[in-house]
Simulated scan of single mutants.
Amino acid sequence: MTTTLSPIQAREALNQKMADSAWAERYEQGDATARQEFSELTRASAAGSGAQWSMAGADLLRSRGFSPSEIENSLSGKTPSDDEYQTARTAKQSLMSSKDFQQRYSDGEPDALGTITRHNDVITRWESANRGRS
């Protein structure tokens, strides 16, 4: 990745990558390039000042329908449980295999954007916390 992204831009870029079913499949299958992009975007999304991320992040998450407790969990980096992670992964895979949902997401439908953002948030927080765990 050659462009420097703000934490919010990196999170949005990650959401877009994960919404791309071909990219998500490559990532799930362990494609080195997709894994590298995921890692770089995850790191970039966590960079910047806490205040900058908190304010902009809270606004973005609120606009995507996150509840106050979901925003707090996301911004604090609270690690989701293994069950929450598996539920988010399974639900996201199911949604992204639906042509109807893919179209709604591509069209920017608020519910679709919020749903994928919510799943990506859980997945990203869990994977970040469990990196290198055996």
Rank of each mutant, 00 (worst) to 15 (best):
T2K: 11
T3C: 02
S6F: 05
I8S: 06
A10R: 03
E12V: 13
L14S: 05
L14E: 04
N15C: 11
N15D: 13
K17M: 05
A24W: 09
E25T: 15
Q29K: 15
G30R: 07
D31F: 02
A32S: 05
A34K: 06
R35M: 14
Q36D: 09
Q36R: 14
Q36M: 11
S39N: 14
T42V: 14
R43F: 06
A44N: 05
S45L: 04
S45C: 07
S45W: 01
A46W: 07
S49I: 11
W53G: 11
S54W: 12
S54M: 13
A56Y: 08
G57E: 00
R62Y: 08
S67C: 03
S69N: 12
E72T: 11
E72D: 13
N73K: 12
S74A: 10
S74L: 01
L75T: 09
T79H: 00
P80Y: 08
P80N: 12
S81K: 01
D82R: 15
D82A: 15
D82F: 13
D83K: 10
R89P: 02
R89V: 14
K92N: 13
K92V: 06
S94Y: 12
L95W: 02
S97H: 15
S97C: 02
S98G: 09
D100A: 14
D100F: 11
F101D: 08
D107R: 05
P110G: 06
G114W: 06
G114N: 01
G114K: 11
T117F: 11
T117V: 13
R118K: 06
H119D: 12
E127R: 00
R131K: 14
R131C: 01
S134Y: 00
S134E: 06
